[in-house]
Each structure stands twice: as C-alpha cells, then as structure tokens.
Simulated assay, not measured.
Amino acid sequence: MTPLCHNRVVIITGAGRGLGRAHALAFAEAGARVVVNDAGVSLNGLGADTSPAQSVVNEILALGGQAVANTEDIADWQGALRLVRSAVESFGQLDVLVNNAGFLRDRMLVNMEEHEWDAVIRVHLKGHMAPLRHAAAYWRSEHRAGRPIQARVINTSSGAGLLGSVGQGNYSAAKAGIAGLTTVAAAELARYGVTVNAIAPAARTRMTELAFAETMAAPTETEFDAMAPENVSPLVVWLGSEQSGDVTGRMFEVEGGRISIADGWRHGPFIDRESRWPLGEVGDAVKRLLAATPPPTPAYGT
C-alpha cells in the first residue's frame, strides 16, 4: 500500500522538539519528504542552536526517510522566503506547510512589558503569516503555470486563542489572530487548490509541561499517555494529505484520542429597532439578548 503522503514535500516550523518533532516523524513515516525548520531558541525565544533541527533530520534519515534541516527565523520576511525556497530547491516542490513554531513569555496584563508582547505576537502571528504568504505565492505561480495543485496548510492555534487564558494575554491574542488568519487564507487560496485548516492541540511540550505537571500524574507504562505530542500528529498528517481536499477553513481541537471541531464566532440573536437606539433603551435590549444567548465558555485559569 502506498503511504498516505508518498513523496509529498512538507515544511514544518518549530520541528526540533515537541509537537513539531512528532509531526515531522509522522509525516516521514507516511512517506513525505520533510523540511525540518527550527531555530533552536529557548522556551522564551532566546539564543539559537542548529542541533534540534539536525537531530530530527538524523532520526528521519535513520528510518530511511528524506529530510533536510533549516534554521531560518520564520518571523523574518526574507527568512520565510528562504525557507519556502529551500523546500523547492531540495525536493523540487512544496505541498504542505505546517506552521507550528512558537514560544512563551507569560505575564499578567498589568505586569507585561512591551518586548514580551512584541516577541510573542511576532513569533506566533507573523511567524505564521510570513511562511504562509511565500508558500501561497509559490502555489499561485504553479497554478498559473497550469500545474495541478493539491496543497495544504495546517496552522497551530490554541485553546488559549479560542477561549483566552489568564496570564497569557500576548499568547492568547496571537493564537486568536491565527484562527482569523486561517479563515481568511482558506477563502483566498481555495481558487489555487490550497486548503487551510488549524488545530488547537493539547499536549505535553516545553510550553505546557509545567501546567500539566501540576494537574496530571505521569502515566504508567501500560496507560495511554493522553498528553503525548504524538497523539496530535495523525490528524495533522491526514490534513496534509490529498485525502483532505474537501476540508478547509476549519478549527480542530485535538487531545489524546479526542478530535473535535471548534465552531467560531457566529451571528447570534438580534433586535432591530429600525432606527437609532435611544440611550435609555440600550441596556434593556442588551439584557434581552444576553438572556437569549448561552454564556461564553470561561477562559482558562478562571
């Protein structure tokens, strides 16, 4: 049987550790050729190290797969362009972009510094947009040249982006932005044969291990490890395959053995007065609308 992603070329950002590493190995096992991107920064985005990306490449090569390492800064516009070009130059094409890279600088809003906001918005939100922009331009040129395109983008949002998370205003805002970017990209790129979906995963990584250490005991050898990052990768690989061509603009929550679809903002109940509202009547109208609407899901940490 031909592997699900036989010969497809996949870029995965932040693939040196955690979820990205799990995705890279899973795509390789499914027959894909993988560009392992990771700048090797610390948990808070400092430093640089080429060894995480190369280590994953070595794992893939040892398993008989094909992979190359890339250490570009994916939030740098030209670095993202070089990343996309490296896939085409190494393997002759690009079929899948998995935007995964990120780091944390958690802080309560009243204590957050400007650089902590800027750094997290940059790596998550711009770090999704820059590779997406250059990959999209490549696929548009291929489409215009008459070559068939079955391209896929899988973005990485978070429950923090969907619901909010106390102490993570910068991260939550960036991940919410990624959700919105996914919706726009799915609409704009459909004409070129590109689908764009996002995941909101829950798994044990460098960014979450402290939180999970406080709330979950380590599994025994015989127990299913629900927080293992490898649990997220089968969905990502399937979304990156040709089989997923009719799925786009969706947000998937995935944790352990559970997959669900998160439904975003929708138009809700309304009252139309058909004229400007008198100030004295607005409060009553809002209360009637709230009474007809389910309460919002609480933010994480409340």
Results as ranks from 00 to 15, higher is better:
Gly280Gln: 15
Gly257Trp: 08
Phe224Asn: 07
Thr205Val: 10
Pro234Gln: 04
Glu214Ile: 03
Gly257His: 07
Ser260Leu: 09
Glu242Leu: 13
Ile259Cys: 13
Asp263Gln: 09
Glu242Asp: 14
Gly257Ala: 11
Gln243Ala: 15
Gly283Asp: 00
Glu223Thr: 03
Ser233Lys: 03
Ala213Gln: 10
Glu223Arg: 03
Ser241Gly: 02
Phe224Thr: 14
Phe212Cys: 08
Pro201Asn: 02
Pro219Asp: 07
Arg250Lys: 12
Ser233Cys: 10
Ala198Ser: 12
Arg206Pro: 00
Ser241Asp: 00
Thr222Ala: 15
Leu239Tyr: 00
Gly280Arg: 12
Pro201Leu: 06
Val254Lys: 03
Ser275Gly: 13
Met227Phe: 13
Phe252Trp: 04
Val282Ile: 15
Ala202Trp: 03
Ala203Tyr: 05
Ala228Tyr: 01
Thr208Gln: 13
Glu221Met: 07
Gly240Leu: 02
Arg266Thr: 15
Thr220Leu: 15
Arg266Val: 15
Gly245Asp: 12
Arg204Tyr: 08
Ile261Phe: 02
Gly283Trp: 00
Ala198Val: 06
Ile261Met: 10
Ser275Ile: 03
Trp277Val: 08
Ala200Met: 13
Ile271Glu: 09
Ser260His: 07
Ala218Val: 11
Ala262Val: 04
Ala228Trp: 04
Met251Pro: 01
Pro219Arg: 11
Ile259Tyr: 06
Trp238Pro: 03
Arg273His: 11
Ala202Cys: 05
Thr208Gly: 10
Lys287Gly: 05
Val254Asn: 00
Glu214Pro: 02
Ala228Glu: 10
Trp265Pro: 07
Gly240Met: 01
Phe212Met: 09
Asp272Gln: 14
Pro219His: 05
Pro234Ser: 06
Arg273Asp: 12
Pro269Cys: 07
Gln243Leu: 09
Glu230Leu: 14
Val286Trp: 03
Thr205Arg: 00
Glu274Val: 03
Phe224Lys: 10
Phe270Ser: 15
Pro229Gln: 03
Glu274Asn: 09
Phe252Met: 00
Glu221Trp: 02
Ala202Val: 06
Leu210Cys: 04
Met227Glu: 03
Phe212Ile: 11
Pro229Phe: 05
Phe224Tyr: 11
Val282Tyr: 14
Gly264Lys: 08
Ser241Leu: 07
Arg204Lys: 14
Glu209Cys: 07
Asp225Glu: 13
Glu274Thr: 12
Gln243Ser: 12
Glu214Arg: 12
Gly283Leu: 01
Arg250Thr: 12
Pro269Tyr: 07
Arg276Asp: 02
Val254Gly: 01
Glu242Ser: 15
Arg206Tyr: 08
Asp225His: 13
Lys287Tyr: 08
Arg250His: 02
Asp263Ala: 10
Phe224Ala: 13
Phe270Gly: 14
Glu253Ala: 03
Leu235Ala: 03
Arg250Ser: 06
Ala262Cys: 09
Asn231Glu: 09
Arg273Gln: 15
Trp238Gln: 04
Pro269Thr: 06
Val282Cys: 14
Thr222Met: 12
